[in-house]
Computed example of a mutant assay.
Amino acid sequence: MKLFNLRLLLVLSLLIAFGTVGSVWAESSNATPSVNLKTEQWTGHSFTFLALPADKQAAGYEIFAVDQATQGFEGDQSVRIPYAQHVGKQVTVSEVIPYPAGPNQQEFMVYMTVNDTREKLVGRTMRGQIEGLVLTDDLTKAKQQFLGKTIYPKFRELTGMYIPGSNKNPMAVPIPIGSPVTVVDVFAGNQSQEPIWLVVSVNGEKAILPIAYSWTNIPVTSWTGTQPWQDALFSEDPRQTLGWSHNVWYQIENGNVEPGMTKGQVLLSWGKPVRSEADDSIWIYANKKINFSSDVVDTVEDVSTNQ
């Protein structure tokens, strides 16, 4: 009864803060095997605490013991749960309660229990996401799919691995786009948008390729119809499967875009545009504009000459 009253008080205080007091409803989930879980489907699922970037570890996670949650959500950082006692631990979500967070906007109070200590915690989503957590099932499946396998990253360089005890900062590891590397380890990283780190071997050096395995705990506005890890890598040799000419690969490897290239080829060469216009037929980069005709590059213009 005491725990219920604390929850009710916390939710009501949030509703009052946003100027709205209405009915509070909770939708439970039976831990379905769905890969992409919306926040209201988290009940019954396990999450793992990510590492935090070094500059955020002292402040701890923006998640609170239930009896200190009201203070925490009012901005008291001293009641955040400590980093050292929680990093790497697993929690199971016990309840998800939505609340109105503004006009046509809904957020969630997420109650969870630490699996080994039974500590009761609560976090509040922002844009449907709680920073510092990864779906445990995503981490397990990523290991099953990628560990020991050859993959083909879609980047020209990867972040080098930090060597414990070394005074040197990790250096970027150059790599031709779409070239083969071997995954030698998989673990939870320190960024919620790409929470899983694939450790790969590149010419005897270790480097990190961060991915998201599913769209779970990523704002729904970012979701697409493809699996998120596909933005970071090919699972098969693209030079064998895509059938592109040697000239196309030469342009991509040298960071060029020319008429006749497809949108997929442009994305590999230049990455995502700053913005798109005219129903996605124009892509704008920092100083270039690409005009497409039927998803094929028609012209590439210097933006500065048109201003």
Score class of each variant (00 low, 15 high):
F187H: 14
S166V: 14
A142H: 01
N190M: 13
M126A: 07
T125R: 01
K141V: 05
V181Y: 06
M171N: 12
K149N: 04
N167I: 06
A172I: 12
K154R: 15
M126C: 12
I130S: 02
I130F: 04
L133T: 13
G189Q: 04
T136M: 01
T182V: 12
I175A: 07
N169R: 15
M161P: 08
P174E: 10
P174M: 12
I130M: 14
Q191E: 10
L133H: 07
F155Q: 15
M161G: 03
G178W: 02
A188R: 03
E157K: 14
K141T: 10
I175H: 07
Q191R: 07
F187D: 13
I175K: 13
I151W: 01
S192V: 13
I151N: 01
N169P: 05
I175V: 12
Y152H: 00
G128N: 08
A188S: 11
A142L: 04
V186P: 15
T140S: 14
L139R: 04
D185W: 05
P174I: 03
P174F: 05
P195V: 00
S192F: 10
N167S: 13
G165D: 03
N190F: 09
G160V: 13
N169Y: 13
G148H: 14
L147Q: 15
T182R: 15
K168I: 14
L158C: 10
L158I: 08
M161H: 14
F155V: 11
G160L: 07
S179W: 08
V181F: 04
R156N: 04
T182L: 10
V199H: 07
G165Y: 03
K154T: 12
R127C: 09
T125Y: 00
S192D: 06
V173N: 03
R156Y: 01
L133V: 08
P153Y: 00
D185T: 00
Q144V: 01
G165H: 02
Q145L: 06
Q129Y: 02
N169L: 15
P164C: 04
G132L: 14
Q145H: 12
E157F: 13
Q145C: 05
A188T: 10
A188N: 04
L133G: 10
Q193N: 12
F187I: 08
V134C: 02
I177H: 03
I196F: 00
G178K: 06
L198E: 12
G128Q: 05
Q129K: 11
